[in-house]
């Protein structure tokens, strides 16, 4: 199962670093070959990775923290003499009016997205569980949204939701509805990006939950059927409880991925109109790269907040994994 979901989780929200995390590997096999010389070759073989992590993870992250603690302007960037301001950037960010909006939007975006992705993904996984004709092919086709570059799917959604020429409004108007300014009105912008994001996340949920369903022994269902359990009862009393560990992982990873989504929102609405669809990650991107006036320091401060949230959930993830390993 572990490996299966590694593959599956390959790319959830695509734009972000995807991929995921099997339980710490090789735990059981460890300590079979003790001995000094081998430690040296182990260090040798992992040296490229260690150097890589130091140069391309630790150092950029360190620079990011440095950005957040100084007052970096474009000029200071070039001259390299920014003023140290401590936590002033953080204070500025957390007390700004945008912070509350972004926080609420992020919460809505994440939880609504995940709830629908999970529910739809689970329904589809249960549906595909019975191997009907062509089920393999159809299931593979469901992966398409997941494999497409995010810019492709986001711009397609943007055009489909276009006010005058979009297919969605064309259908709405055919049924006598009004023209809806999906992406340009503050009431619907957040809903629009959430819809697109749900669509993007369904394949990920489907794949993981489907592989989770495969772990549930078929005879349990047969026994329940013999005892006269209805389909709903089987789902309620067999599928859901036995799927709980997989559900936990799916929701957790979904949360982590959704938290760092930038592409979809940026391409569809750039967080607007105003701040109507602004989420934390997009806010950070907008401050640093989205306007003509780059504000790296506040952007980095928002980034720090995102890292802290990610770290908290990283530990939760670890605990869940440990718990799973024990049980």
């Amino acid at each position: 199962m572990t490996t299966t979901s590694v593959e599956a989780a390959g790319r959830a929200s695509g734009g972000g670093a995807a991929g995921r995390a099997p339980a710490a590997p090789g735990g059981r096999a460890r300590r079979r070959f003790p001995g000094r010389p081998q430690q040296w070759s182990a260090i040798g073989f992992s040296a490229p990775l260690l150097v890589y992590l130091a140069a391309f993870y630790a150092y950029p992250l360190w620079r990011n923290i440095e950005l957040s603690l100084h007052d970096y302007t474009v000029r200071a960037f070039v001259q390299g003499d920014p003023e140290f301001v401590g936590f002033a950037n953080h204070t500025e960010v957390f007390t700004s009016g945008t912070f509350g909006t972004a926080l609420v939007n992020t919460a809505l975006f994440t939880f609504v997205s995940i709830a629908f992705q999970y529910a739809i993904g689970l329904a589809l996984a249960v549906f595909f569980r019975d191997n009907f004709r062509l089920s393999g092919v159809l299931r593979a086709l469901f992966l398409v949204p997941w494999l497409l570059p995010l810019i492709v799917s986001s711009s397609t959604w943007a055009w489909m939701l276009n006010s005058e020429n979009g297919i969605v409004n064309s259908v709405v108007e055919a049924f006598g509805g009004p023209q809806i300014n999906w992406l340009t009105s503050p009431e619907t912008a957040l809903i629009s990006v959430i819809i697109a994001n749900i669509w993007l996340g369904i394949p990920f949920n489907l794949v993981i939950l489907y592989s989770g369903l495969q772990q549930i022994p078929a005879d349990l269902y047969e026994a329940a059927s013999l005892d006269g359990a209805t389909a709903w009862q089987r789902f309620r009393h067999i599928t859901l409880p036995l799927l709980r560990p997989v559900t936990a992982i799916t929701l957790l990873l979904g949360f982590i991925y959704t938290l760092k989504v930038v592409d979809v929102v940026w391409i569809m609405t750039t967080g607007g109109p105003g701040d109507a669809s602004l989420i934390l990650a997009v806010w950070s991107y907008r401050e640093a790269f989205g306007t003509g006036q780059p504000e790296f320091s506040p952007a980095a401060a928002i980034g720090n907040l995102l890292i802290v949230i990610a770290l908290v959930f990283g530990f939760v993830h670890l605990r869940t994994q440990r718990y799973r390993e024990r049980s």
Binding site: G15, G16, A17, A18, G19, R20, A21, L53, Y57, Y59, P60, L61, W62, R63, N64, L67, I256, L259, K260, V262, A281, S284, Y285, A288, F289, F296, A299, A300, G303, N304, L306, I307, A310, L311, F313, G314, H317, L318
Partner: peptide
């Protein structure tokens, strides 16, 4: 594992 959770936008700034 934690490295995978760092938002790309943070890495981009760094």
């Amino acid at each position: 594992l934690v490295a995978q959770m760092i938002p790309a936008v943070v890495m981009a700034m760094g």
